[in-house]
């Protein structure tokens, strides 16, 4: 039933969102401050009381975690509600579906948009981290591998945006968002190894954490920014790719079902 999205038609969705954000670009601009504030508050403020973690300064430990978080924020948090509202309340997609655009075009377009927004946050975050490390110190980018952190972050954004789109199709009421944020996004943010190594937890809890996509995003990006790259990075990448692909297929099917009756 569901067809392969067309890149040309999907880009129309991105274009549409660009027009919307022409009026409200400040929102894009401000989204990246949140991880930055956390970097300053937790990485430096609280980090000043911490010392090294696994041989690297605490701020260098937290920075890639927050980079992954900003991918998630950009791709999920900020777009989540908006897509749902268009799906169920404004009937925007119904209007678009009266044209040659198809459901996969719309879905993939929204995903591209979310991915782009997450990538902008990520690029801005990397730049700030690099700049702060060079001027004020301490350095948070410890290796040349970090050159791959941006493509890595874009990849993570793609995965999170597919997850966000998928999750949106399950939301029935506005209050479900609070539940999703409280039960999924917030715990992922706090327990994915963003702020402390998950080895602090007992084994079963670690296994649980290893299910979380953000954990793999954090680990992947941390390997790249600290230079502690090993074969394990392939596992993280493969897991993320799998989750992203499944989420995308499920999202498309569910969107198709709720839009075509």
């Amino acid at each position: 039933m569901s067809a392969i999205p067309s890149l040309r038609r999907s880009s129309r969705m991105v274009q549409r969102n660009l027009i919307v954000y022409k009026h409200t670009w400040r929102v894009i601009f401000t989204g990246f401050f949140e991880p930055l504030f956390y970097l300053l508050g937790i990485g430096f403020g609280l980090g000043g009381m911490v010392g090294d973690v696994g041989g690297i300064p605490y701020s260098a430990f937290v920075a890639p975690g927050l980079l992954a978080t900003s991918c998630m924020n950009g791709a999920i948090t900020d777009g989540f509600f908006n897509i749902w509202f268009k799906l169920h309340h404004q009937k925007t997609y119904d209007g678009i579906l009266a044209t040659p655009m198809r459901v996969p075009d719309i879905g993939f377009g929204e995903m591209l948009w979310a991915m782009g927004r997450g990538s902008i946050y990520a690029a801005a975050f990397i730049s700030v981290v690099l700049l702060m490390g060079e001027t004020a110190g301490p350095r948070m980018i410890l290796s040349r591998w970090a050159i791959l952190a941006l493509p890595g972050a874009v990849f993570a954004c793609a995965v999170f945006s597919a997850m966000g789109l998928c999750a949106t199709t399950f939301v029935r009421k506005v209050h479900d968002f609070d539940i999703a944020m409280g039960l999924v996004v917030m715990p992922m943010f706090l327990f994915s190894g963003t702020f402390f190594p998950i080895t602090q937890f007992p084994k079963p809890a670690q296994w649980l954490i290893q299910v979380l996509p953000l954990h793999h995003g954090v680990e992947m990006l941390r390997q790249l920014t600290t230079g502690a790259v090993d074969v394990g990075i392939l596992v993280h990448i493969a897991y993320l790719a799998l989750i992203g692909a499944v989420a995308f297929v499920v999202a498309m099917q569910r969107m198709e079902r709720s839009l075509i009756k």
């Binding site: 911490v50 609070d178 409280g182 917030m186 706090l190 702020f195 937890f201």
Partner: peptide, 30 residues
């Protein structure tokens, strides 16, 4: 009330566990 319950109690509790217990162990070492 359900949504706001998560917002009001769960979030600080999660922060308490993650930061207080998780990061807390790192802090106490320093």
């Amino acid at each position: 009330w359900r949504g706001s319950v998560f917002f009001s109690f769960l979030q600080p509790t999660l922060f308490l566990i993650a930061m207080g217990v998780g990061v807390g162990r790192l802090v106490n070492r320093g």
